[in-house]
Nucleic acid binder design. Structure first.
Lengths: 116, 116
DNA sequence: TTCATATTTGGCAAAATAGCCAAACGATAT
DNA sequence: ATATCGTTTGGCTATTTTGCCAAATATGAA
């Protein structure tokens, strides 16, 4: 059994790519980053993103269908929460790496901060 | 210093999203998976993907510009290698998760394997 | 019931992406 | 010099994604 981790089949790879694709949009990634602090309702996330509510809802649908977040209706609102525990570690890692890259690039350009 | 990990700025988030976006395509993800075993030339990767050489080259450019892989010309060929060490762990984690999901879904449908 | 509030969905236009062919490029060999 | 090999780039079309508005839906309040 589970040959799929050694030599991933088409369905498996597609499913995994879907996760990455879902995270590969600034607005969606920002929402996911925010969800590390705990669940939020769509309205919270809209405030964070600043786009139309319908746009935010569509982004959330992408994340949900990829299995990155899960949603739960409670009271008047729908709350979204992270459903991919290992993501936090990876975000941390890429974050550090990118910070490093940005720092190097700034150094090359002669500025002392790029954190604008 | 490094406020960006707590409250990521636009540039930072865009850069991070670029990594995910790069990984968010089946062909690119497949190549990255293959690169876990060590560097490969474009021709190897083309054989893996089966698309036009130009297509493979463009996919590799996306990965390279996102900083997921790095390339090095050696002899006649150009070799691509992983440049994002922490990726392997995350792939492992999502892989396990997806395998789990696929298994559950298959169970629901009554089939005993979906690993086709 | 009607009204308001929170979220999703339909539909469309603009923008981005994917993939192929052909052409260009750079290095090595002849 | 020409030829060849491995790779990238130009240019094009087809497909997908994005984001807004408006409309639908669901749920709680009055």
């Amino acid at each position: 059994m589970n040959e799929m981790e050694a030599r991933p089949n088409r369905h498996f790879i597609a499913e995994q790519a879907k996760i990455f694709k879902a995270l590969g949009h600034p607005s969606r990634l920002l929402m996911v980053q925010a969800l590390r602090d705990g669940e939020k309702c769509v309205c919270d996330l809209q405030a964070l993103i600043g786009a139309d509510m319908s746009t935010v809802s569509r982004h959330l649908a992408v994340l949900r269908e990829a299995g990155v977040v899960r949603s739960e209706k409670r009271g008047t609102n729908i709350y979204y929460a992270l459903a991919l525990s290992c993501l936090a570690t990876f975000l941390q890692c890429t974050g550090t790496l990118i910070a490093e890259r940005i720092r190097q690039k700034s150094a090359l350009l002669g500025n002392d901060q790029d954190a604008t």
